[in-house]
Amino acid sequence: MARLQDTPPRGGIDIRDLSMTYRRGREVTQALSACSLTIPEGGWASLIGASGCGKSTLLRILADIVQPSGGSAMLSGMTPAEARATRGFALVSQQSVLLPWRRMLENVELGLEVARADKAERRKRAEEAIELVGLRGFERAYPHELSGGMRQRAAIARALTLRPRFLLMDEPFGALDELTRASLNFELLRILEETSATLLLVTHSIAEAIILSDVVAVMSPRPGRIVHQLEIGFGHHRTDAMRDDPAFAAYEAELRHALHGDPGVTRQPIRQPAFA
C-alpha cells in the first residue's frame, strides 16, 4: 500500500511549493499557492476541490502545457518538459479530444503514430489497449458514432498505448452520466491494476476520488492550496463492495468537511476497512 512520505521513491511525482500567477493586464490572479504533494511510484492520488481552485492548473503544469511561476514539479526525477519529451506521461481530459476524421482505431493509434512506432507495433498495441478498455468491435467507428462513455474509453486507450508511467487525468468522467461514470471508475481500477502506472486524478466527485485513490488531496478555493490529505486504506484490489464499507462513508464525510473548510477536520480516527 502506498503511503505519504517525506521523500518519495524516485519513480513518483514530487510537487514542491508550486505556485502559479496569471497576469492579465493589471489584473493578477493567484491560481496556485505553495502546493506540495508527493505520490510514490505506482500510487494513485486524487485532487479534489471547488471548480476554479487550480487543480486543473496543477495538472497542466505537470503535463508541461503551462509553466509554473514558482516551485518545482518532478515526474520520476524529470521536469515536465523532459517527461514530455520521453513521452513518460499521458494526459486524459474531460473532453475525449478524438479527431473526428479518424476512425476509433486510428484515434487510438495517434500517440504511437506521433512517436513514429512502426505499423505492426502500432496496430498490436492499439488493439491491446482497445481490448483493455472494452471497445472491441468498434474499431472502424468514427467518434461521432460512439457514445460519450465509449469516446472516453477510446481516449483512455489512446493514453495507454504509450505505456505511460504517469497517467494524468483531468475530470476524465466529468461529462458522463452517473451510471456510466460509476462503471468506468471500476474499469479504470482494473486497468490501473494491470498497468502499474502512477495516477494523478483531478475530480470534483468525492466518491470517485475515494474509489480511485490511495491519497486524496483537498484543495482550497483560489488561491489553490492543498489544505488536507487523506489516506484511503482500501489497498489496490478494490471491488464494488468498498462503497458499502462503513469506512467509505467516513472517508466521504471527512472529505466533505475538508472541502467546506471545517476547522475540526480530523475529529475521529477512521476505522480501517475490514478487508484492507
Binding site: A63, I65, R87, L91, Q95, V97, W101, G111, E113, V114
Partner: peptide, 26 residues
C-alpha cells in the same frame, strides 16, 4: 484541446500539419 493533445505527445509541426491542420481544413 487538440493542440494540447499534440503538444503532450511531442508532435512536431509537420505531424501537426498532416494529422490535424490539413484534415481540419478540408
Amino acid at each position: 484541446q487538440v493542440a494540447e493533445l499534440l503538444h503532450t505527445l511531442s508532435a512536431d509541426w509537420k505531424q501537426r500539419l498532416l494529422m490535424v491542420r490539413l484534415p481540419a481544413a478540408l
